[in-house]
């Protein structure tokens, strides 16, 4: 089994698709991996896709020209669903689409179902973080939020907060993917940043304590249902929500 790695950028993703769709590289015995999550060296047999901006650009135009608009717009979303490994199903669909233009809507194909489910899950995940992202105010009134979403939602998430807080200074950090969003004076930037860390505690922002107190009081004791709460807020993301912080 040969593992093909790409660098986890959108350009890398398009270069990879180009290799398998237009250059018809075989998928037999191939596993595809995003190098943002696993280092190539951890595999015995691997090959790295060399990201090529020119190829990526051309392939992007090829898709724009040849795919129905609705499907074309989903390609970026499929890229952002980075943890569910959509590369192979997508390659299979793109290879078939010339012969069967409606294939992407035909739910009798497992690939179509997988893509469809992932897209839905992506928007669900984004919507979740509309609510769950927590800003902590740093001393200079900068609002800082750190999170680790299931998918790479930040490129489709920041807009919500910029629209909502156009006059604030914002830092949002996806610490799993090391993707950083900065916003100040109506200028914005989205960058990959390997070593970025801001330590926060209860003392950083006094409103955290007020919020925690509100959070504990608003529950009706007679209705207590930790199970329902756990279903809605999995334990894995609670470290990002100050209302769940365990204070020693």
């Amino acid at each position: 089994m040969l593992t093909v790695f790409y660098d986890g950028t959108f350009e890398g993703f398009l270069t990879l698709l180009n290799n398998f769709v237009l250059e018809e590289k075989s998928l037999d015995g191939i596993k595809i991996q995003n190098a943002k999550f696993i280092q190539p060296q951890s595999e015995l047999f691997y090959e790295e896709v060399v990201t090529n901006s020119e190829i990526a650009k051309n392939f992007f135009h090829y898709l724009k020209k040849n795919l129905p608009k609705e499907l074309f717009e989903k390609i970026y979303i499929y890229y952002l669903c980075d943890t569910v490994k959509l590369e192979i199903p997508l390659i299979n669909i793109l290879r078939e689409i010339e012969k069967n233009p409606n294939i992407w809507q035909d739910f009798s194909y497992d690939e179509v179902i997988k893509l469809h489910k992932a897209e839905k899950a992506f928007y669900r995940e984004r919507h979740r973080w509309f609510g769950f992202l927590r800003f902590i105010e740093l001393p200079n009134r900068v609002l800082f939020a750190k999170f680790e979403p299931k998918f790479n939602v930040l490129p489709k998430l920041w807009f919500h907060f910029v629209r909502r807080f156009p006059n604030e200074k914002l830092i949002i950090f996806d610490s799993l993917r090391k993707l950083l969003f900065l916003y100040k004076d109506r200028k914005k930037e989205l960058i990959w940043m390997d070593d970025f860390e801001i330590e926060v505690s209860l003392k950083t922002d006094l409103f955290v304590t007020l919020w925690r107190s509100y959070f504990s009081q608003i529950a009706i004791p007679e209705r207590q249902s930790y199970e329902r709460q756990r279903n809605k807020i999995p334990l894995s993301i609670r470290k990002f929500l100050p209302e769940f912080w365990k204070i020693k």
Binding site: F130, A219, P221, R223
Partner: peptide
């Protein structure tokens, strides 16, 4: 469509 920001220990959306 509204946004839920948290869920209290009674399982209701905040």
């Amino acid at each position: 469509s509204g946004i839920c920001h948290s869920w209290s220990s009674d399982g209701r959306c905040i």
